[in-house]
Amino acid sequence: MKRLLFALLACCVLALPCRAEAAGPSPGLLVPIIPDARTGHYQITVSDAEALTAASVTRSVERTGITAKTDVFVEYPLDVEHPQTYYVTVTAIPEADRIGLDAPASKTFPVTTGCCPGVEGAFILGDGSAADPYQVYTPAQLRHVQQHLDAQFVQKQDITLTGTWTPLGTLTGVYDGGGYSILELNTTDGLFSSLNGATVKSVNLVSPTVQGTNYVGGIAGTLALSNLTNCTVTSGTIYGDARAAGGPVFAGGIIGYSDSSTVINCKATGSVGGIANGAALYQGGITGHNIQSSYIGCLSSIIFLGAEGTSTHTGGIVGVLGGYISPITLQNCHWTAPAWAVGSGSNTGFTPNTGDSFGNSQVPSIDGLS
């Protein structure tokens, strides 16, 4: 009877779901153990097959002295790019003074990784919090960002895109590119449609093509109450065509339209332009149109492609200020063309905050500048 009682208790040691986890550089499963009163000694095994064979990949750990609910990390070579079912076996082992009175008992649980079972691109690692952001490895996982736009993310490797990309919507959370690259983006507004109260950092777009309508930029079409840091657009083609949609075009190497935001240490190279069918075109090396935003340590080397016959306002950093008078902060920014940092209503060359104290300048090349 005692052995049977122990076995029944041991079958309840796992009462909460396992989840994928990354402890340091190694992924694995976090297994919650709820002990019974008869033992504090457990063996936890993770396998890729329910029926263990010589070919099975398994990892085991033992923990003793467990007297309260405890999460035990089992290092395991998870597939971090695709959901997969693993099998967790928890074995309760009697302490030495219980041998002969109680017998070992175990239970096996299937665990399918991924934040959203059955959804392509489900995140395997992370929970979207600041302490444990979702980890992005593949194009499908990058696409899945649009299902959690208020969460936090970190990119873990270079990602090459194919075909036409639909912008990721309005980000209100945090996307950390980790210094890795996103290559061959081909889209309309930008990587994101817009950023609102968001933070984007260390994103590198390589050879993106952004061909949209009114608001176009490498990172996003519009930026509001947000922060961009250490982002680059290399060899980008950014072009807005608003002839069918009507209205002006706001085009920038990084952002089309910026409102009450901060852009720090961002860099853009390539071409920017558009055509607005008689309405204004605002084109800038970093941002097309600015309202009360700051640019610190930004660099641009852009060929501008504003269409003939369009009222065009061009600046090496910003195409135009809202109402031509909206406040702007420029510090230590450098650009290769035109001669002024910010275009004005008449394009006569309005460059605020120039001089040694602010360190802004037109330069022949931004190579070697940081």
Rank of each mutant, 00 (worst) to 15 (best):
residue 3 R to N: 09
residue 4 L to N: 09
residue 15 A to G: 15
residue 18 C to M: 13
residue 22 A to Y: 03
residue 32 P to G: 06
residue 38 R to I: 04
residue 41 H to Y: 13
residue 46 V to Y: 02
residue 52 L to P: 11
residue 53 T to V: 11
residue 60 S to T: 15
residue 63 R to I: 13
residue 68 A to P: 02
residue 75 E to Y: 03
residue 77 P to N: 02
residue 80 V to L: 08
residue 80 V to N: 06
residue 91 T to I: 04
residue 97 D to V: 11
residue 102 D to G: 00
residue 102 D to W: 10
residue 109 F to P: 01
residue 112 T to K: 13
residue 115 C to G: 08
residue 117 P to R: 10
residue 118 G to I: 09
residue 120 E to A: 15
residue 120 E to G: 14
residue 123 F to W: 08
residue 139 P to D: 13
residue 143 R to C: 07
residue 145 V to A: 08
residue 158 D to Q: 09
residue 170 T to F: 00
residue 171 L to P: 06
residue 172 T to R: 13
residue 174 V to K: 12
residue 176 D to G: 11
residue 183 L to Q: 13
residue 190 G to C: 03
residue 192 F to L: 01
residue 196 N to H: 14
residue 199 T to C: 04
residue 221 G to L: 04
residue 228 L to P: 01
residue 238 I to C: 01
residue 240 G to R: 00
residue 264 I to K: 14
residue 268 A to C: 07
residue 273 G to W: 07
residue 276 A to S: 14
residue 283 Q to F: 01
residue 285 G to M: 06
residue 286 I to L: 11
residue 292 Q to C: 05
residue 310 T to M: 07
residue 317 I to A: 05
residue 319 G to K: 02
residue 321 L to D: 06
residue 321 L to F: 02
residue 323 G to A: 01
residue 328 I to T: 12
residue 330 L to A: 12
residue 341 A to E: 05
residue 342 V to F: 03
residue 345 G to T: 01
residue 346 S to F: 11
residue 347 N to R: 04
residue 363 V to I: 13
residue 367 D to A: 15
residue 370 S to Q: 15
